[in-house]
Amino acid sequence: MELRQLEYFVAVAEEQNFTRAAERVHISQSGVSAQIRQLESELGAELFDRSARVTTLTPAGKAAIEPARAALAAAESVGRAVDEVTCLVRGALTVGMVTGCTITPLFDALATFHRAHPGVEITLLEDNSDKLTAGVDTGAIDTALIGAAATPNALHSHTIISEQLVATFPPDHPLAKKRRLTLADLQPHPIACMPPGTGLRTVFDQACASRNIHPPITFQATAPDAIADLATRGLAVAILSESMATHYRDRLTHRPLADIETPALLSLIWKTPNTPALREFLTHARRAFGNS
């Protein structure tokens, strides 16, 4: 019994005519008839009643039709599985990361994915979160690690970090005397913050706008190290996330901003896992971030 015989059998059953079935499978009618006869011989039963103008299934044919369809579907699944592996070997993956990214699990995920699938061409690019989000939405980027106030509704996401913003300054700064800070406390002081288009800045700007507060943002930098260095030299109060600020606790102190209720998110985003490479990378990424 061969798959092509089952294919011809299903074609005749569905077309109820040998001629139309032959046209459907692109061989001669005599070829279809010969293969069906051979199948019937192997099964030891006639599958079709050929006595009328319309070809119909015999009881044996009715019993065989669904298993035949299932066998053809299974064979098609095998082909798809092999095609996916082949595509993965020859695939491409574009990953974005927010500027100044120091989240090593992302690099761990890229490394384990590359070892598992060395044939996939990986492109890694850096930009602000707004541009990365737009790239994922249009399909130019497969997945990206972004900072955000919220994940766009049209995209899927895996949140890595969710934390409050803090004000960061030297231990002898006047604000260090306060245990609780609000946005209003920042108004007399120059501010160093990330630029527009970043998740942290979006959270900060939205909170200030909701309270009609306009602290002077005199310094902007994409790298947390640069923002912290400005604060260390007394040039500004740095606005950072809590985990960022802890990296500089040997020289800076920080206080939470009590009236910023929305957390800053660090999230891996994607639109639709519609390629084998993206599906495989997401598996590696979830594992890497989960282990961290």
Score class of each variant (00 low, 15 high):
Leu3Trp: 02
Leu3Arg: 09
Arg4Lys: 13
Leu6Met: 06
Tyr8Glu: 00
Tyr8Ala: 08
Val10Leu: 07
Ala11Tyr: 10
Val12His: 03
Gln16Glu: 06
Phe18Asp: 00
Phe18Thr: 01
Ala21Glu: 01
Glu23Cys: 08
Val25His: 11
Ser28Phe: 14
Val32Asp: 00
Ser33Asn: 05
Glu40Trp: 05
Ser41Trp: 05
Ser51Thr: 12
Thr56Lys: 09
Leu57Lys: 14
Gly61Cys: 12
Gly61Leu: 10
Ala63Gly: 14
Glu66Val: 15
Glu66Tyr: 12
Glu66Cys: 12
Glu76Met: 06
Ser77His: 12
Val78Cys: 11
Val82Tyr: 10
Val82Asn: 05
Cys87Thr: 07
Leu88Val: 05
Val89Lys: 15
Arg90Phe: 04
Ala92Leu: 02
Met97Ala: 11
Thr99Leu: 09
Ile103Trp: 10
Thr104Asp: 04
Thr104Ala: 15
Thr104His: 08
Leu106Lys: 11
Leu106Ser: 09
Phe107Thr: 12
Ala109Arg: 03
Phe113Trp: 06
His114Lys: 15
Ala116Arg: 11
Ala116Phe: 05
Ile122Met: 13
Thr123Pro: 08
Ser129His: 03
Thr133Phe: 10
Thr138Glu: 03
Leu145Asp: 00
Thr151Arg: 12
Thr151Ala: 14
Pro152Ile: 08
His156Tyr: 10
Ser157Leu: 06
Thr159Arg: 10
Ile161Val: 12
Ser162Tyr: 08
Ala167Lys: 01
Ala176Met: 02
Lys177Ser: 15
Arg179Met: 09
Gln187Cys: 15
His189Phe: 15
His189Asp: 01
Pro190Trp: 05
Ala192Ile: 08
Ala192Met: 03
Pro196Gly: 12
Gly199Met: 10
Arg201Cys: 09
Thr202Glu: 05
Phe204Gln: 03
Ala207Gly: 10
Ala209Phe: 06
Ala209Gln: 03
Asn212Lys: 13
Ile213His: 05
His214Lys: 15
Ile217Asp: 00
Gln220Val: 10
Ala221Glu: 03
Pro224Arg: 02
Asp225His: 14
Ala226Val: 07
Ala228Phe: 07
Asp229Gly: 15
Asp229Glu: 10
Arg233Met: 09
Ile239Asn: 01
Ile239Ala: 04
Leu240Val: 02
Ser243Tyr: 02
Tyr248Asn: 09
Pro256Asn: 04
Ala258Gln: 14
Thr262Leu: 09
Ala277Ile: 01
Phe281Ser: 13
His284Ala: 15
Arg287Gln: 11
Phe289Asn: 00
Asn291Glu: 08
